[in-house]
Simulated assay, not measured.
Amino acid sequence: MNLDHLRYFQAIAYYEHYGRAAEALHVSQPNLSYAVTQLENELGVPLFEKQGRGVRLTRYGRRFLQSVTQSLQILDAETRDLQELGCGGGLVLLGGIRKLAAQMVPELMQQFLAQPGNEHTRFELHTESSFTADLLRAVAEERLDMAFVNHPGDEALFESVEFRRSPFVIVAPPDHPLAQKSSVTLRETLPYPYVYFSRRGGLRRPIDELFQKINARPQIAYETEEDTVVAGMAAAGFGIAIVPDHPVLQCLNVRVIPLTDPDPGRTAYLCRKRGSLHPEGAARFFAFCKTRLEV
């Protein structure tokens, strides 16, 4: 069984006629007949039966056609991918937390593809569960080439590009004692209960680090994972919260209060696995992002 015989079989199944299939393939009709005979001898079942001047698939042939079609599609797709890799492109598997994957990452992809020499590169953008830990695990397991995340993970395992993001702010219900302030320090928030990020969320670590800078701990009343849920619970009066400044906050019934001390600036990271064999397109995209993003 060889590749040409499988393609001949697929063509005969499509045209239901040896002559038309031979013409389309630019081969002789005896070559097609020989290929089908070889396949039938190897499989031990008839693949075609006569129908007037043409042929039609037997039930064995119909079953075999499904497998042949799927196999050839996979083989052709992989061939295209490898040819693109040979041209310096190929498929780049990206991951990202949703806030970055919704706008910043697509913009970087578009800018990269607009540069000469990158036209053979294709992207897949995955958010997994949108948690940094899950995305870093996918990078470590080489299911992703790189990921845009909230913290850089194990430095021995990941190579990272650090870049700035929008700062943290305090959100509080409109009737909260802090709501009338034009700005607030983190120490001023200590008397009040917090809706806080759970340890599973990627924002827990940088917010913990803010409190460590003032040698204090927040009063945690509730914990959850997503920043929009944290802000929504604050709007409902379950406590104040520290969240990234984002336009979506304007849609909630909360006061958004600038945080002045400690420095509320925050960072995110583009991470890839150290020592991994990266496609040339992925390596070029990582270098491109490094020049555009690095702090």
Rank of each mutant, 00 (worst) to 15 (best):
Y196H: 10
G95C: 02
R98G: 08
L259Q: 00
L100C: 06
G61T: 04
A138S: 15
V45A: 14
F211L: 12
A216V: 09
E225V: 10
I207E: 00
F9K: 05
S198V: 04
L43H: 09
R217S: 07
L277Q: 14
I74C: 11
E223V: 02
V230E: 01
R284H: 05
C251A: 15
E226D: 13
G96Y: 01
D145A: 05
L249H: 06
E42D: 15
T37Q: 11
L75W: 14
P173D: 09
P167Y: 04
I170T: 01
V105F: 01
G44F: 09
L178M: 11
V295T: 14
Q115A: 03
K50I: 09
E155K: 11
R284D: 00
C289E: 02
E124T: 08
G153S: 05
K99A: 12
V184H: 09
K50E: 11
N150C: 13
H278A: 15
M233A: 14
A13C: 07
A147D: 00
K273M: 10
D263L: 10
G237V: 08
Y194N: 02
F64H: 07
L108Y: 03
E119S: 01
I240V: 13
P247A: 05
A35Y: 00
S198N: 15
D227S: 10
A216T: 09
K181V: 08
S130Y: 06
S276V: 12
S183D: 13
L203R: 05
L144R: 06
S183Q: 14
M233Y: 07
T132C: 08
V295H: 03
N41G: 05
T189V: 13
Q219D: 10
T189R: 04
E155T: 13
A138V: 06
F285W: 02
Y18G: 01
G117Y: 04
Q29C: 06
Q219L: 15
P264M: 10
L144Q: 01
L270H: 04
T58V: 14
F285H: 00
Q29K: 14
E128Y: 13
T69I: 14
L75A: 12
E49M: 15
T37C: 13
A102K: 08
A114D: 04
I12D: 03
F168G: 04
H5Y: 06
A102F: 05
R122Q: 09
L100W: 03
G89C: 00
P247H: 03
R56A: 09
A147Q: 04
F288S: 01
S160L: 06
P262F: 02
C87Q: 13
R80S: 10
V36M: 09
Q103Y: 14
H176E: 06
Y15D: 09
E119W: 00
D81W: 01
S182W: 05
A24T: 06
I170F: 02
G88I: 00
R59K: 15
E223F: 06
Q29F: 03
D175N: 15
P262E: 01
Q212S: 12
S129H: 09
L32S: 04
S182G: 14
Q10D: 15
L25F: 07
E84A: 08
T189G: 02
H17F: 07
E42H: 11
H176N: 11
Q73A: 13
E162V: 13
G239R: 03
Q29Y: 04
L72I: 12
R53K: 15
F123I: 02
Q212G: 14
S33N: 11
R7F: 05
R63Y: 13
K273T: 05
I74Q: 15
Q115E: 11
A140L: 13
S71W: 12
R59C: 11
